[in-house]
């Protein structure tokens, strides 16, 4: 492990052992539904409250990923997890049922990649052998937290995104597997002074562009080095802004897609501008992208997750919405 450039890290020995995903009904019906390990017929996930439902999603992916990797609870050295609830209670309440050390992190919707960066440090320094990186989001808990009650009849503009109900887990290890985590770039908080809380994609796009630019210049790579550059949840409007900012800097990315646009069928599902939330990148990366990497259809993928740093109080106080973005590169090794 060493520092590269200003904000980047080069990892030597971090591999993806297994991944697992669990979602609600809407994600299962989406284009990548067949890659999802477990799904529920409604948002309740057989639980009494939305928060409990989100906990259940997290527990599912822990169980499934352990089973897939033929590991037991005692083999895990650390859980790094986060979500969007106040004081990340869902992650903490999930961790209380396991006899494993836990680091709770909050990185808004960047959590899936941020947890990988945090976890990879312990793996690469050979401190721990197996670390589980976990994230989740839930449509109803986020609506309750950041917007209006779910049954409220207010009209949402087309720019709003739909929070993904789902959880994704990645077990990383220092034993060699086919998928290696090679590079990471820690992003900066970028404030473009955009204030529309119903259009978060555009608020986050500048930070994603800065992180990508920083990543490419730190490692001195062209954008074409990667088979796919994937952003977290910029949605329709945000990804256009992202491309436009990069054009200003003479970076052309033909190999680009956005998790928020991949998880739902935007034409046939009522999801406005696309998916968002921690679970968005968490589910897409840990199901579809990992499957493509295992099949070696994709060999080098850069995932940049983006987070909007706000809460209902800050938006009511008319503060702008800064964004943050972290990047991790997955590469197939022989």
């Amino acid at each position: 492990m060493k520092r590269v450039g200003k904000n980047s890290i080069l990892f030597d020995n971090v591999y993806v052992l297994e991944t697992a995903t669990s979602t609600g009904p809407r994600e299962k019906k989406g284009p990548i539904g067949e890659y999802i390990d477990k799904d529920y017929e409604n948002l309740n996930c057989l639980e009494k409250s939305w928060e409990k439902a989100e906990c259940r999603l997290q527990k599912d992916v822990i169980e499934i990923s352990l089973k897939k990797a033929s590991l037991e609870e005692k083999d895990l050295d650390l859980i790094v997890s986060g979500d969007l609830n106040n004081q990340i209670v869902v992650s903490s309440f999930t961790a209380k049922d396991y006899d494993i050390p836990h680091i709770g992190i909050y990185g808004a919707c960047t959590t899936s990649i941020l947890s990988l960066i945090v976890g990879s440090n312990y793996i690469d320094t050979k401190t721990f052998n197996n670390v589980l990186c976990l994230t989740s989001s839930h449509y109803a808990t986020s609506e309750k937290q950041f917007r209006f009650p779910t049954e409220y009849g207010g009209q949402k503009p087309d720019t709003t995104t739909t929070t993904v109900t789902g959880s994704g887990a990645t077990i990383i290890t220092n034993q060699k597997t086919t998928i290696k985590i090679t590079k990471a770039t820690i992003g900066k908080v970028i404030d473009a002074e955009y204030k529309d809380a119903q259009d978060l994609g555009k608020a986050m796009a500048p930070s994603a562009a800065v992180t990508l630019k920083q990543h490419l210049s730190d490692f001195n790579l062209p954008a074409s080095y990667y088979d796919l550059i994937l952003t977290g949840d910029l949605s329709l409007g945000g990804s256009k802004v992202f491309i436009d900012i990069l054009k200003e800097w003479d970076i052309i990315i033909p190999n680009y897609n956005d998790c928020g646009l991949m998880i739902y069928d935007l034409n046939n599902q009522e999801v406005f501008s696309g998916g968002s939330g921690c679970g968005c990148a968490g589910v897409v990366v840990n199901s579809y992208i990992m499957a493509l990497l295992r099949k070696k259809i994709l060999k080098k993928v850069l995932v940049i997750t983006t987070g909007a740093l706000m809460n209902p109080i800050s938006t009511a106080q008319k503060e702008s919405i800064p964004g943050i973005a972290h990047a991790v590169a997955f590469e197939v090794v022989e």
Partner: peptide, 8 residues
């Protein structure tokens, strides 16, 4: 609120 559950 006593009868119905939130649907989401």
């Amino acid at each position: 609120s006593l009868i119905f559950k939130p649907k989401g």
